[in-house]
Design a protein around this nucleic acid. Structure first.
Length: 491
RNA sequence: GGGCCGUUAGCUCAACUGGUAGAGCAGUGGACUCUUAAUCCAUUGGUUGUAAGUUCAAGUCUUACACGGCCCA
């Protein structure tokens, strides 16, 4: 926009006038109370009580509504705790101050000193003795009734969304409580929170395309991490037997309602445990989380009710595939030719290098995953697609791995860790062959990680939880962008 | 990557089969000492996402592009 709009110009004129009168964005005003506290403490107080023993307060916040009359006015100010109404009379303030108040704009940030009272309709309010403009707002706020509803602007100008949309504030406050809960839950179990590199020379721990960056001083290519896994397991080798990390992973893929290029993962590693331990841990964690942040084990998600107090469903990949593909038999699930034919019938594009495990997972994702609506643990993932997981003793085609689904979406992934350094080296080599064959999501060979395993990692299980998706579920949001303060958008 | 939908005043939305773009809020001026989506009177505000095209005439039809939303891969 070449010419600034008239509403902004009007406010700039007001600011220029204010500056000539000495306004300088003052910062000495201090509050004695927040709106929410005042409501909590005094909402039950009668007006007689408030007048008998006057409560003087200093409140401050953004002015969101204004109801002007000739000699008295009401306005609402909002602080981090909520809103409170202020009442301004010409008689109390003096004529000049009252006129100055009338010239304020919605969105201005003010400080008010006065006493509490209750209006005739019973609303707790502050009768203002002195009003101070603290910050002049130059940009007009969205319409007061509908708020800001344009999705793009809500994401691009999240600060405006937060000012005017209570629901947005609720979701992000809830997100913070979810993350706090995850930390406290693990801290209680004697897990140690750690931080590991986000810039890695060898990106590992997941099958995904990495972002590439460059370190100028060292003239080296670095990758943004796709997962913290290999570093966290090095710490288990080091004797940190219970560790976790909560932070960002970066994956160079498309954007959707379920994907953002940077997203938050909680990964935890627990020595002297196996994947079953972590299935139980996750089930308990989710149940406790719901009770802690929502006050109930019944979670409503997009019109669907999920009762987390019941034992979660458990099913193997192969069972799920057989359930949704009546034409396939158990024997065929290990038969490359049969699986290849099934993929062709389902319209799944496959590559020549795909083995039975990879083909099986393709069929699972196409036919079964979306149907996992109720909370479900899926177990028995093929070794071919699980290069860091321990093989199942009785059936080395599979690994001791699980994923957790709600509403057809993967929320978590865990397994008994592969701690045999020679097996791990072979799996890395298989990945390198796939990468050479054109699979740019395949893993690199991480020699130092093998060395770490050669020092000996105790039997260990690990779990990763997609925090954004978990928050989507808990906060009943359909899009990942609604649980990310600043989601990725094209610029 | 593919399909469908959307983009109009600062914001929320109208504008029928193509016929010179309207309302509410916000703003401006005025009235009003208990309002709370305050009310009442008056009033300013638009290169209809961008660029082409069809037409006497385009917000409306066509094409391309940009950005967004939903669905699919």
């Amino acid at each position: 926009m070449s010419e600034e709009n008239k509403l902004v110009a009007e406010r700039r004129r007001k600011l220029a006038t204010l500056r000539t009168e000495g306004f300088d964005f003052p910062n000495q005003f201090r509050r004695s109370a927040l709106a929410g506290q005042l409501h909590a403490v005094y909402d039950d107080c009668s007006n007689e009580t408030l007048e008998a023993e006057p409560v003087e307060v200093q409140v401050g916040g953004r002015m969101l509504t204004k109801r002007l009359m000739g000699k008295a006015s009401f306005a609402t100010i909002q602080d981090r705790s909520g809103q409170i109404q202020i009442f301004l009379q010409k008689e109390t303030l003096g004529e000049a101050a009252y006129i100055a108040f009338k010239a304020l704009d919605l969105g201005d940030i003010v400080g008010a000193r006065g006493t509490l009272f209750r209006t005739r309709t019973g609303e707790l309010s502050v009768k203002v003795q002195e009003l101070t403009l603290l910050t002049k707002s130059l940009q007009p706020l969205p319409e007061k009734f509908h708020g800001l509803s344009d999705q793009e602007m809500r994401y691009r100008q999240r600060y405006v969304d937060l000012i005017v949309n209570e629901e947005t504030r609720r979701v992000f406050a809830l997100r913070t409580r979810v993350v706090q809960f995850l930390r406290s839950y693990l801290d209680t179990l004697d897990f140690l929170e750690v931080e590991t590199p986000m810039m890695q020379a060898i990106p590992g721990g997941a099958l995904a395309r990495p972002f590439v960056t460059h370190h100028n001083a060292m003239d080296r290519q670095l990758y943004l991490r796709i997962a913290p896994e290999l570093y966290l397991k090095r710490l288990v080798v080091g004797g940190f037997e219970r560790v976790y990390e909560v932070n960002r992973n970066f994956r160079n893929e498309g954007v959707s309602t379920q994907h953002n290029p940077e997203f938050t993962m909680l990964e935890l590693y627990m020595a002297y445990a196996d994947y079953r331990t972590l299935i139980d841990l996750l089930e308990n964690l989710l149940r406790s989380l719901a009770v802690h942040v929502l006050g109930t084990t019944t979670v409503q998600y997009q019109g669907q009710s999920h009762d987390l107090s019941k034992a979660f469903r458990r099913l193997s990949v192969e069972e799920a595939v057989l359930l949704h593909n009546p034409g396939l038999s158990a024997q065929q699930l290990r038969d490359v030719d049969a699986l290849r034919a099934a993929c062709a019938a389902l319209g799944i594009a496959v590559k020549p290098g795909f083995g039975a495990g990879k083909l099986l997972i393709e069929i699972f994702e196409k036919t079964a995953e979306h149907a996992l609506v109720e909370p479900t643990f899926i177990t028995g993932y093929p070794a071919e697609v699980s290069p860091l997981a321990r093989k199942t003793d009785a059936d080395p085609f599979l690994t001791d791995r699980f994923e957790f689904f709600i509403n057809g979406r993967e929320l978590a992934n865990g397994f008994s860790e592969l701690n045999d350094p020679e097996d791990q080296a072979e799996r890395f080599q298989a990945q390198v062959r796939q990468k050479a064959g054109g699979d740019d999501e395949a893993m690199f060979y991480d020699a130092d990680y093998i060395t770490a395993l050669e020092y000996g990692m105790p039997p260990t299980a690990g779990l990763g939880i997609g925090v954004d998706r978990l928050v989507m579920f808990i906060a009943d949001q359909a899009s990942i962008r609604d649980v990310l303060l600043f989601p990725h958008l094209r610029s």
